[in-house]
Simulated assay, not measured.
Amino acid sequence: MDLVKKAVETLETFNLPCIDVILHNAGGNQASYGKVNDSVEQVVFMNAVAPLYLNQLLLPFIEKSQSPKKRIIFVGSSLHDSKNKGGDSSEAARIPDSVEMKDLVGGEGATEWNMMKYYKISKLAVVWDTYCLSNKVPKDIAVIAFCPGFVPTTELARKSSFMLKFVMKYILSRFSFAVSEDESTDDYIYYITSDEIKNGEHYQKRVATEPSKDALDQAKQDAYWEFANTNINKIIS
Rank of each mutant, 00 (worst) to 15 (best):
residue 130 T to A: 12
residue 91 E to H: 11
residue 77 S to I: 04
residue 34 G to T: 02
residue 210 E to H: 06
residue 225 W to H: 06
residue 207 V to L: 10
residue 223 A to E: 11
residue 187 D to K: 04
residue 107 G to N: 13
residue 93 A to D: 04
residue 162 F to T: 07
residue 74 F to V: 00
residue 86 G to A: 13
residue 194 S to W: 05
residue 237 S to C: 12
residue 84 N to A: 09
residue 134 S to E: 12
residue 33 Y to M: 13
residue 85 K to L: 12
residue 153 T to Q: 15
residue 99 V to K: 04
residue 108 E to D: 11
residue 181 E to H: 00
residue 176 S to Q: 11
residue 11 L to V: 11
residue 99 V to S: 11
residue 37 N to C: 06
residue 192 I to C: 09
residue 156 L to A: 07
residue 50 A to K: 04
residue 172 L to N: 08
residue 134 S to F: 04
residue 214 D to G: 06
residue 109 G to F: 09
residue 106 G to N: 07
residue 31 A to Y: 06
residue 195 D to F: 01
residue 18 C to E: 12
residue 203 Y to V: 03
residue 162 F to S: 08
residue 81 D to S: 07
residue 102 K to Y: 00
residue 146 F to N: 00
residue 50 A to I: 01
residue 2 D to Y: 08
residue 182 D to F: 04
residue 205 K to F: 03
residue 51 P to M: 06
residue 108 E to V: 12
residue 6 K to I: 03
residue 42 Q to G: 04
residue 190 Y to W: 09
residue 207 V to Y: 07
residue 30 Q to F: 14
residue 143 V to E: 03
residue 108 E to L: 14
residue 226 E to T: 13
residue 197 I to Y: 00
residue 114 N to S: 08
residue 196 E to D: 15
residue 204 Q to C: 13
residue 139 K to M: 11
residue 85 K to R: 13
residue 107 G to W: 04
residue 45 F to T: 04
residue 231 N to S: 15
residue 108 E to S: 14
residue 39 S to T: 13
residue 225 W to P: 01
residue 111 T to L: 14
residue 30 Q to L: 12
residue 115 M to Y: 01
residue 95 I to N: 01
residue 43 V to Q: 14
residue 169 K to W: 09
residue 33 Y to R: 07
residue 224 Y to S: 12
residue 94 R to T: 15
residue 224 Y to I: 05
residue 122 S to F: 07
residue 133 L to I: 14
residue 151 V to T: 10
residue 101 M to I: 12
residue 237 S to E: 15
residue 222 D to C: 06
residue 227 F to E: 03
residue 163 M to D: 08
residue 110 A to P: 14
residue 105 V to Q: 05
residue 200 G to L: 06
residue 88 D to K: 07
residue 216 L to Y: 06
residue 61 F to H: 06
residue 120 K to N: 11
residue 169 K to C: 10
residue 177 F to H: 09
residue 98 S to Q: 13
residue 94 R to E: 08
residue 25 N to R: 10
residue 84 N to L: 01
residue 129 D to E: 12
residue 33 Y to G: 08
residue 35 K to F: 04
residue 40 V to G: 01
residue 207 V to P: 01
residue 175 F to I: 03
residue 15 N to G: 09
residue 10 T to L: 13
residue 132 C to V: 15
residue 26 A to D: 09
residue 94 R to I: 00
residue 119 Y to F: 15
residue 8 V to A: 13
residue 39 S to H: 09
residue 60 P to E: 08
residue 162 F to E: 08
residue 77 S to Q: 02
residue 11 L to D: 03
residue 42 Q to N: 10
residue 4 V to F: 05
residue 87 G to Y: 08
residue 147 C to Y: 00
residue 3 L to R: 06
residue 165 K to I: 07
residue 114 N to E: 10
residue 110 A to G: 11
residue 234 K to T: 07
residue 11 L to K: 04
